[in-house]
Amino acid sequence: MARTPDGPPPPPTVQKLRLRYTKRGPLRFASHRDLARALERALRRAQVPMAFSAGFSPHPKISYMGAAPTGAASEAEYFEIGLSARCDPEQVRAALDASLPPGIDVLECVEAVEGSGSLADRLNATRWRIDLPGVDADELSAAVQTFLAQEVVLVAKRTKNGTKDVDAREAVVSAAVAVEAGCAILLVVVRQLTPTVRPDDVMAALAAVADLHPPLPARAVREAQGRLDDSGDVADPLGPDRVASSRCQGEPAQV
């Protein structure tokens, strides 16, 4: 028989908040586990009234989704928290932002509206900006054209169970080249499949099809994350919640 702790169960979740935050500057080297630890501690410092799971090891109710890889910066990371008391989303955003180290900046916080679907379902694509210092823009364009012309581009990817070949081409929705301050930039929209195709997999694919080998490490930034819309762009994943909350004007959400 399962043992249960003495005492009353923890208070239930009365409000869910969805937040967008960044991973900037040196903190791009943080892993998803590092970020989870930092966010949980910041929630405690900010005295956000978290709801906890029941049991002998109560855990705060937090869901992380779609973390950018270690080394990649991001303007669009998302997580969801469950609260035991209702709070003003903007106040939670500001308090949490103040409790986090510079570089992890909380940009948005909205109340999750019941019936509007899960946040994870709205995160199926990423728009990446990959800065490639030292790479010639024309060479990059040619490599991208070669890549886009392929049906399949297999790259070896390390997974938990050893190396696995993954089709990088299938995941790439679009790819374009720009130049900024003399630096070649690859703008690429990627579908989040399993296993995920990450910026270094895209670079490995360009190396495979066009022998493109950047002299310096590439610097990737996730500019947006969300659902792929019909035009091939990435939609704001908090949009549906924002629309619904503005309808009920900050009152407790109704189904």
């Binding site: 040196p26 903190l27 270690t70 080394g71 510079p102």
Partner: peptide, 18 residues
Amino acid sequence: EPLLAQVQKPIQYVGGEL
């Protein structure tokens, strides 16, 4: 910074702790 992209657990070298 360019070296950090090539090593294990780079976060330990960047500082900025609370």
